[in-house]
Every structure is written in structure tokens, then in C-alpha cells.
Simulated assay, not measured.
Amino acid sequence: MRAMAIDAATRRLVPVRRPVPVPGPREVLLRVRACGVCRTDLHIIDGELPRREPSAVPGHEVVGEVVGLGPQARR
């Protein structure tokens, strides 16, 4: 999958390729069509808040379509 990640050295957003994740038991897999970056994401990019991982992919405000289900995902 394609994503924009925070480069650990430059603290800029850079395009990256990551493996397509496999949904867990009660999860769904989304094909993201649009993603917003909120102010909290910008604080992380600017170094004002700590990152949980070195090359974090910001953006949790997404619009997408369900393309996969975990084995216990029902709705």
C-alpha cells in the first residue's frame, strides 16, 4: 500500500510503500479513498508531541470502502 510517513531524520512527510495489512479477528480492511491530517498529527510532525514509532503514518480521519473482513467481523 502507499502511505505518507514521517521521515525520522528530516521530520517531513515522505511517500512510502508498506505491506497490505491483514485484518485481525474483529477488524476490517479499508481501501482508503481520502484521509485528513488533523492538528494532533501536525503536532507530531512538528516534534511537539512524541511519536509512537519512528516512521509513523499520520491520519486517522479516513473515508474508504471495506475490502476485507477478519474471521469474527460481522458488521
Rank of each mutant, 00 (worst) to 15 (best):
M1V: 12
M1P: 14
M1G: 13
R2C: 00
R2L: 10
A3I: 05
M4L: 15
M4D: 00
M4P: 00
I6C: 08
I6Q: 12
I6D: 08
I6M: 12
I6V: 14
I6S: 09
D7F: 01
A8Y: 00
A8M: 00
T10E: 06
T10K: 07
R11W: 07
R11Y: 07
R11L: 12
R11A: 14
R11Q: 15
R12K: 13
R12H: 02
L13V: 07
L13G: 06
L13D: 04
V14A: 10
P15F: 03
P15H: 08
V16T: 13
V16K: 07
V16N: 05
R17P: 00
R17N: 12
R18Y: 00
P19D: 15
P19K: 13
V20W: 01
P21I: 06
V22P: 02
V22K: 14
V22A: 15
P23I: 05
P25Q: 01
R26A: 13
R26M: 04
R26P: 00
E27F: 02
E27W: 03
E27Q: 15
V28T: 04
L30M: 10
L30S: 02
L30H: 02
R31W: 08
R31M: 07
V32K: 10
V32D: 07
V32Y: 08
V32I: 15
R33N: 04
R33C: 00
A34S: 14
A34H: 09
C35E: 01
C35P: 01
C35H: 00
G36T: 11
V37S: 00
C38K: 04
C38F: 03
R39K: 06
R39Q: 11
T40C: 02
D41K: 06
D41Y: 07
L42C: 09
L42E: 12
H43E: 14
H43D: 14
H43G: 11
H43I: 09
I44E: 11
I44W: 01
I44C: 10
I45A: 11
I45R: 14
I45K: 10
D46P: 00
L49G: 06
L49V: 13
P50S: 10
R52I: 05
R52V: 05
R52F: 08
E53D: 07
P54K: 05
P54D: 10
P54Y: 05
P54R: 05
P54S: 10
S55G: 09
V57K: 04
V57G: 03
V57P: 03
P58F: 05
G59T: 08
V62M: 11
V63A: 14
G64P: 09
G64V: 09
E65Y: 01
E65V: 15
E65S: 11
V66R: 10
V67W: 01
V67L: 03
V67M: 03
G68A: 13
G68Y: 03
L69V: 13
P71D: 12
Q72F: 03
A73K: 02
A73H: 03
R74F: 07
R74I: 04
R74M: 08
R74D: 14
R74E: 15
R75I: 00
R75S: 15
R75D: 14
